[in-house]
Every structure is written in structure tokens, then in C-alpha cells.
């Protein structure tokens, strides 16, 4: 079977997650960790061959491994506070991946928004809510088998698609030209503010290019996003309980 190899990381990963999902009685974390590591290793062997650049490879494996492991820990940890912290770690690792994709601005923004704002706020709420100690609903996973199986089937399907058509086996031989693949046509303008694309390839990912794109081609969408943000803020204020309705 041609694509049989992808079954190993998927099945191992499913076993690891299913094993570690919260239960009344905890399970051996070591076994779970072993399975998770095995799954990661299999994933690396099957899908993540090194590109040859040692620094880049090691950074990539570091960030991606951290992101996946801490994501898995986040969904399996019985303590919501730790889970939120694992999420923060996962976010940091993802920001590292952003950096590798030459998106320094995004990386910084994500850290600020997620780690700095969202996670902290959620942690705050969790701690407020659990003044009486750990709650038993965090010790029970809902429909664990079904959910994990279906999710991993989905993952398997995605991986299969990548393996079949993604060019991992060297099908995308024209990778050299990849940079010019969707070079913008100077005549196609999204709107009257559109600027001609940058001719300097090295500028890709720089804030200059990003800013130009955001505030020319995507100006309307930026405005729209801003409006949505404003409305969401108003909504959040309106929905959130008043002090007069009682304490949290």
C-alpha cells in the first residue's frame, strides 16, 4: 500500500492522545509520553524530511515539536490552569514557526495578542472560577474515543492529501521558481489605493511590504476588521455581567 506509512504516526498519535485524555483515574504519563514521542518521530520520518540547512532544520523541529507537544498537553491536562499555560507555550512555538516563515511582525503581534492578552485573561478567569479548587468536570473527557478517532481520521485524510498531491516525493520540481509563482500582475489592481508589487524579492515578509499591502490592496478589509473589532468590544462590554448583578 503506497500511503500506508502515514498510518503509523496517525495511529500512534491517536493512541497517545486517547491515552492521555482526562479521566477519573489518571493513566501512566510515561506511556503516553512514549507514544507521543513515537508518533512525532514517525511523523518526522514520514513527512518532515530535513531540508539540509542544519540551523533551519533544528529550529523547525524545535518549534514544530514544541507546538505539537504542548498542544497535545494542553488538551489533555486535567488542570485548566496548566492547560492554559501549555496553550501559551504552543502559541510561542507557533510564533517561532512564523519567524521561520519570514513573518517577524506577525510573530510579535501573535505573542502580544495571545500570550499577552488572551491567555492571561483566561487564566485570570479560570483562577477566579476555581477558587474552591480543581473541579471534577475537568477530570472527564466527553466522548473521548469518538472525538479522537474522528479527528485523527480527519488528520489522516489531510495528510493523505498532502502525500498524494503535495509534491513531498519531489513532484514539485519547479520549486526554484516558486517565488515568482503568483507574482502580481501590475495591471491588476484591487482598488484605487493599490500599489505596484515590490520588485525586491528580499523585501518579502518585511513590515514595509506587509504594510503596503494591508493599507492599499486590503484597505477596505482592514477597515472592516477594525469595525468588527469595535463591535465585538461593544458587544463584550454589553454582555459581560455588571457588578450590580453580583460578583463573579
Amino acid at each position: 500500500m503506497k500511503n500506508g506509512a502515514l498510518l503509523i504516526p496517525v495511529v500512534l498519535g491517536w493512541l497517545a492522545v486517547w491515552w492521555m485524555l482526562p479521566r477519573e483515574k489518571g493513566r501512566s504519563r510515561i506511556l503516553g509520553a512514549l507514544m507521543a514521542l513515537g508518533a512525532l518521530l514517525a511523523l518526522q520520518v514520514t513527512f518532515l524530511p530535513p531540508v539540509g540547512n542544519v540551523v533551519r532544520d533544528s529550529l523547525f523541529y524545535l518549534f514544530s515539536g514544541t507546538a505539537i507537544l504542548s498542544g497535545g498537553l494542553m488538551i489533555t491536562d486535567r488542570n485548566p490552569v496548566f492547560a492554559a499555560l501549555w496553550f501559551a507555550l504552543s502559541t510561542l512555538a507557533v510564533c517561532g514557526l512564523f519567524l521561520l516563515n519570514s513573518a517577524p511582525f506577525l510573530s510579535a503581534a501573535t505573542i502580544i495578542v495571545y500570550a499577552g492578552a488572551i491567555v492571561v485573561t483566561f487564566l485570570f478567569v479560570i483562577m477566579l472560577a476555581q477558587q474552591s479548587g480543581a473541579s471534577n468536570y475537568d477530570h472527564h473527557a466527553v466522548q473521548p474515543v469518538m472525538a479522537s478517532v474522528m479527528s485523527f481520521v480527519l488528520l489522516g485524510a489531510l495528510l493523505f492529501a498532502l502525500q498524494e498531491w503535495g509534491g513531498i516525493d519531489g513532484k514539485a520540481a519547479d520549486e526554484v521558481k516558486a517565488g515568482q509563482f503568483v507574482a502580481q500582475d501590475a495591471k491588476v489592481r484591487a482598488n484605487i489605493f493599490s500599489q505596484p508589487p515590490s520588485s525586491n524579492k528580499n523585501e518579502i515578509g518585511s513590515m514595509r511590504v506587509l504594510g503596503r499591502s494591508l493599507f492599499s490592496d486590503y484597505l477596505y478589509f482592514v477597515e472592516l476588521a477594525g469595525t468588527v473589532l469595535l463591535i465585538a468590544t461593544i458587544g463584550a462590554i454589553a454582555i459581560a455581567p455588571r457588578r450590580s448583578q453580583g460578583t463573579l
Binding site: 492522545v17 482526562p22 505539537i68 498542544g71 479560570i126 475537568d138 473527557a141 472525538a147 474522528m150
Partner: peptide, 15 residues
């Protein structure tokens, strides 16, 4: 992988 993990979390956690 991250997407699948998030989905499992969404489906299984009660918090």
C-alpha cells in the same frame, strides 16, 4: 496536526 489537536480539545473538554 495543530488543527486536529484543537478539534479534539474542542470536542472533549468540558471546561
Amino acid at each position: 496536526v495543530l488543527f486536529a489537536l484543537g478539534m479534539i480539545g474542542f470536542l472533549t473538554r468540558r471546561n
